[in-house]
Simulated scan of single mutants.
Amino acid sequence: MGFYILNMFEKNATSISQQIEILKSRGLIISDTSFAEHQLANISYYRLGEYWYVMQDNKENHTFKPKSRFEDMMSLYNFDRELRFLLFDVIERIEISLRTKLIYHLSHEFDPWWFQNFELFQDSQALVKTLSNLQEELERTKEPTIKSHNQKHKDDKRFPPSWKSLEQTSFGSLSKLYGNLKNTIKSKDIIAEEFGAVNHTYLPSWLQSISQIRNFCAHHSRLWNKNLPSTLRLLSKPPYKWIADVPNQNDFKYLYIHLCLMKYMLNIIEPENIFTKRLNALFEKYSNVDPNALGMKSNWQDEDLWK
């Protein structure tokens, strides 16, 4: 029996010098060829393409707008890179706080193995997946606390207690554990209130949003000019400082409202944070970056939230 493959996609690999010639032929100004060669040798053509895409006036022919420069595209790339570093630092503080609150409140309301108690959760299948991921993380870890626990308690087939186990798990798993808790669990509302979310209705969507952005940061994915799929639920009257204008559904696809949410939570966790100063300094450093691509509002620094 013969096998036939018709209409196969064909594309040949191009050298760095060929890539540069292609870009020049399409109208991209490359004044320093050595600089461009160095960048393309360390950052793939395909990855950089996400940043010069908006500089093209014809997306099918890939031709560039007049005065489009390779150096300006690299500024966009470096801005995005430094933005991810900044957000990763902010999210780390939120993640550690969430982990601490989950361990503390649930362990006191129930016991240190609450995260294995299926009676506390809405979706058993989702919990099985979360616990399976946790098991893999615990098997991979080289943390002395986990190894020591397993050696001392070989006959105990449970996970190590929450203050050991959940220190090894991801923000995404923590977010799913919280969201999957039954709404009757007192700690679910207590944790939401401590994050300024009033009750359990809103916090799961906040954590989902932040977890998604954390994954983009961890995998070096573009944040600049990215449409973010979101199911954010925001309070109409938050108990702490917030932005003056009520965002509409279209705003949720831009990064700005998600930055506001991180700032809101960070202000509670670390009231003396310098997130505003660092974000503003980033825009000043890369003055050619259009803030509108992130959905930034004019004079955002003057909002009570960001002061």
Rank of each mutant, 00 (worst) to 15 (best):
G2T: 04
Y4F: 09
N7W: 13
F9W: 06
E10H: 07
K11F: 05
N12D: 10
A13Y: 05
S17K: 14
S17G: 00
Q18P: 03
Q19N: 08
Q19G: 01
Q19R: 05
K24W: 01
K24P: 06
R26P: 04
R26T: 09
I29A: 14
I30E: 13
S31C: 05
S31G: 08
A41F: 11
I43W: 03
I43T: 07
R47P: 07
W52E: 12
Y53V: 03
M55A: 15
M55D: 13
Q56W: 04
H62V: 00
F64Q: 01
K67Y: 10
E71I: 03
D72A: 12
D72L: 04
M73Y: 04
L83S: 01
R84A: 03
F85T: 04
E92Q: 11
R93C: 03
R93V: 07
I94S: 07
I96F: 14
S97A: 15
R99Y: 05
K101A: 06
L106E: 04
H108Y: 15
E109S: 11
W114R: 09
F115P: 11
F115L: 12
Q116H: 07
E119H: 13
S124E: 12
A126V: 10
A126S: 14
A126Q: 15
L127N: 08
V128C: 07
S132G: 09
S132L: 13
S132C: 10
Q135E: 15
E139R: 11
E143K: 09
P144K: 15
P144A: 14
T145Y: 12
S148M: 08
H149T: 01
H153G: 09
K154P: 02
K154N: 06
K157Q: 10
K157D: 09
R158P: 05
R158I: 04
W163C: 11
S165P: 10
G172M: 10
L174G: 03
Y178W: 12
Y178R: 08
N180T: 04
I190C: 14
E194Y: 13
G196F: 13
Y202C: 12
P204H: 12
P204K: 08
P204R: 10
S209G: 08
I213W: 12
I213Y: 11
R214F: 08
F216N: 05
W224N: 04
W224H: 02
N225L: 02
N227P: 07
R233C: 10
S236D: 15
K237S: 15
Y240H: 15
W242S: 12
V246F: 01
Q249N: 09
N250T: 11
D251V: 04
K253P: 00
Y256R: 01
I257D: 06
H258D: 02
K263G: 01
Y264P: 00
E270D: 15
P271I: 12
P271F: 13
N273R: 14
I274S: 03
F275Q: 02
T276F: 05
K277D: 11
K277S: 03
R278Q: 12
L279D: 06
A281E: 13
L282V: 01
E284F: 08
K285V: 06
P291M: 01
P291V: 00
N292W: 07
N292S: 06
L294W: 13
M296R: 00
N299L: 04
Q301S: 09
L305M: 08
